Computed example of a mutant assay.
Amino acid sequence: MKIRLVNAGVFTPVEDIETTLTPPEKGFYWIDADIEDLALLQPLFSIHDLAVEDCLSEEEQRPKIEIYESHYFIVINSIRFDDEEIFLRALNVFLGRHYIITVTKQKIHELRALKPVLWEQEVNEPDRFLYLLIDLVVDNYFTVGDRIEARIEKLEEDILMHTKKSHLNEIIGLRSEILWLKKVLGPQKEVINTLNKKDLRLIDDQLQKYFSDIYENAVKISETFDTYRDLMGNLREAYQSSIANRANEIMRVFTAITTIFMPLTVITGIYGMNFDHIPELHWKYGYFFVISIMITLGFSMFYIFRKKEWL
């Protein structure tokens, strides 16, 4: 657990947790905690048992905001895209009048990226800290969206150039991840909308208006993922069409080959009959004559098929 006094964006480490119970003269306290630290923080800040239970739960948490007497409990999901897989990581935030507590199970990139922003904007209030943090989280969805779009474009190009069976698994996997993200974005939008519209005493009225900009971005992200979902449907149709065209191409080649060999089979069938009076059987050049006809006929049909682009 790291405790910092944030004053005009400048961090001052704090050693004693008891110090954070009293509002500082200037600035606010930021407590960056792990799950294990909740046992110490709960009695000090009167954190509700249900909020602690949500933080400790192994199940995926739905984004939400809960209002308690002395603080707000907010859950938002940070997103990561590593090794072609999408991960959501719960970011639990307790917002008080003179403090903000962030509780995470894993490292959250946005918390590290937030530090220079706090210093640059000389942040002095915990509610503005919350605004900037959520803004970074939402912006990161755009970054991940761009990477998903690039992956869709590459997958489309691969399917058109050379279709493989593995492409179907990729399409199904990516579509499932997009649908999963869509389910998360719904509640996350509602949380941001609550911060924008609801009368919240721990958030400054002037600052509250800025959450509308984040909400608009969240709506854009949701619409973007709707587009990605439709694109994945188009990709699946393109894959199936490509497979069908490939099968048709193979059948066309096989049909053409069969057609070429049909007259040759007729010729060999005629001269393979066990009749005694077939004139060419006893002709000195009969074998070479028939073979020449077969070769000429085969190449002629092949040439005609190629000219008509049937092969």
Score class of each variant (00 low, 15 high):
residue 290 V to A: 13
residue 141 Y to A: 01
residue 40 L to M: 08
residue 299 F to G: 01
residue 27 G to I: 10
residue 89 R to K: 15
residue 36 E to G: 09
residue 109 H to T: 14
residue 118 L to R: 00
residue 241 S to K: 08
residue 157 E to P: 02
residue 306 R to H: 09
residue 147 R to M: 14
residue 304 I to N: 08
residue 105 K to C: 02
residue 44 L to H: 08
residue 42 Q to V: 13
residue 31 I to T: 05
residue 121 Q to Y: 03
residue 96 G to R: 01
residue 288 F to L: 13
residue 211 F to L: 03
residue 188 Q to A: 07
residue 236 R to G: 01
residue 128 R to A: 00
residue 87 F to N: 07
residue 61 Q to A: 14
residue 158 D to M: 14
residue 66 E to I: 11
residue 47 I to W: 06
residue 308 K to I: 10
residue 263 P to Q: 07
residue 10 V to L: 06
residue 276 D to R: 13
residue 50 L to V: 14
residue 185 L to N: 02
residue 147 R to W: 02
residue 98 H to M: 07
residue 2 K to W: 02
residue 133 L to D: 01
residue 126 P to C: 04
residue 173 G to N: 14
residue 144 V to M: 11
residue 300 S to C: 12
residue 277 H to G: 10
residue 174 L to W: 09
residue 276 D to E: 15
residue 299 F to R: 04
residue 142 F to L: 13
residue 295 I to L: 12
residue 235 L to H: 08
residue 300 S to F: 13
residue 21 L to Q: 15
residue 191 V to F: 04
residue 63 P to H: 10
residue 174 L to N: 06
residue 38 L to R: 04
residue 299 F to P: 03
residue 286 G to I: 02
residue 224 T to G: 06
residue 228 Y to S: 00
residue 163 T to H: 06
residue 75 V to W: 01
residue 91 L to R: 00
residue 96 G to E: 02
residue 53 E to W: 05
residue 93 V to D: 03
residue 100 I to E: 07
residue 15 E to A: 14
residue 194 T to S: 13
residue 248 N to Q: 08
residue 5 L to K: 15
residue 160 L to I: 14
residue 179 L to P: 00
residue 208 Q to W: 02
residue 279 P to F: 08
residue 186 G to L: 15
residue 267 I to D: 07
residue 141 Y to R: 03
residue 182 K to M: 10
residue 31 I to D: 00
residue 238 A to I: 13
residue 8 A to N: 10
residue 72 Y to E: 06
residue 216 E to T: 09
residue 130 L to M: 02
residue 218 A to C: 07
residue 101 I to G: 03
residue 294 M to R: 02
residue 268 T to I: 12
residue 69 E to D: 13
residue 232 M to I: 07
residue 59 E to T: 13
residue 150 A to P: 00
residue 165 K to M: 11
residue 144 V to D: 11
residue 279 P to M: 09
residue 124 N to G: 04
residue 119 W to D: 06
residue 271 Y to D: 11
residue 274 N to I: 13
residue 116 P to I: 05
residue 298 G to I: 02
residue 225 F to Y: 15
residue 200 L to F: 06
residue 146 D to R: 14
residue 64 K to E: 11
residue 113 A to I: 11
residue 117 V to Q: 11
residue 197 K to S: 07
residue 70 S to D: 15
residue 185 L to M: 13
residue 9 G to C: 08
residue 235 L to A: 08
residue 29 Y to C: 01
